[in-house]
């Protein structure tokens, strides 16, 4: 899933400066799961902003409305708030960056992000999420025992580990596992460590973001 976290409330307050009627829009997908922008967070955000404005005296008389959509990354769900979106002068999206853009493209009002979209990852434990996929567009996990060096190695080294691997940890951060230690251990366990002796050639980054914004088309299901 896409993992995101809320921007500091003070920053959101600044983004909404001068707005008299604000619509906070949540999303029931990834950001609900990582508890950054689901219905619950929408309500909390609404309360927090109202309290902030009440105590600070800013945005006097401002009104906050709330909605939570099934998804903010598909036009038909975006359409569901057409009426209320017409009544407000600012929309605060608690979705990932995708949702913010869908709302901004559809509605001619000031749309601002309430979250910082972090990465494609998953839960490590309750309340902890970790990055797993670099969205590089050309998966090489079959070469590395199912552990991604593109995103989990701090230097995206494809022929690792570098000289900073120490006791299984990355030189950048003692809390970060060295991806290449994990790869080495797993390939050893699988009896395939000899595969790591092959030189992995330079990656074709044109399949990644470096090739420009990407598009996926599945022709047979288009209407």
């Amino acid at each position: 899933m896409i993992v995101a976290e809320q921007k500091p409330i003070a920053e959101i307050d600044r983004l909404l400066e001068g707005a008299k009627k604000v619509l906070i829009v949540g999303c029931r997908e990834c950001v609900t799961v990582c508890q950054a922008g689901g219905e619950k967070e929408v309500n909390t955000m609404a309360s927090a902003l109202r309290l902030l404005w009440a105590t600070s005296g800013r945005n006097p008389g401002a009104e906050i409305l709330t909605e939570t959509l099934e998804r903010q990354c598909e036009p038909e769900y975006i359409e569901q708030i057409v009426k209320v979106a017409g009544e407000v002068d600012a929309i605060l999206s608690l979705a990932c960056g995708v949702g913010v853009q869908y709302l901004a493209e559809r509605y001619p009002v000031w749309v601002v992000p309430g979250l910082n979209t972090k990465f494609a990852g998953g839960a490590l434990e309750q309340g902890v999420w970790t990055e797993k996929c670099g969205l590089c567009g050309d998966c090489i996990l079959y070469k590395t025992g199912g552990i991604c060096p593109v995103i989990r190695c701090s230097k995206s080294i494809l022929n690792g580990p570098c000289g900073g691997s120490h006791n299984g940890k990355c030189e950048v951060n003692e809390e970060t596992d060295c991806a290449w230690q994990l790869i080495y251990d797993r390939m050893t366990k699988l009896g395939k460590v000899d595969r790591l002796l092959e030189i992995e050639p330079p990656k074709d980054w044109s399949k990644s973001r470096d090739g420009g914004p990407r598009k996926v088309v599945k022709e047979e299901i288009r209407i």
Partner: peptide
């Protein structure tokens, strides 16, 4: 922490 941030 949040209550500190919102002035309560």
């Amino acid at each position: 922490k949040l209550l500190d941030q919102v002035g309560v």
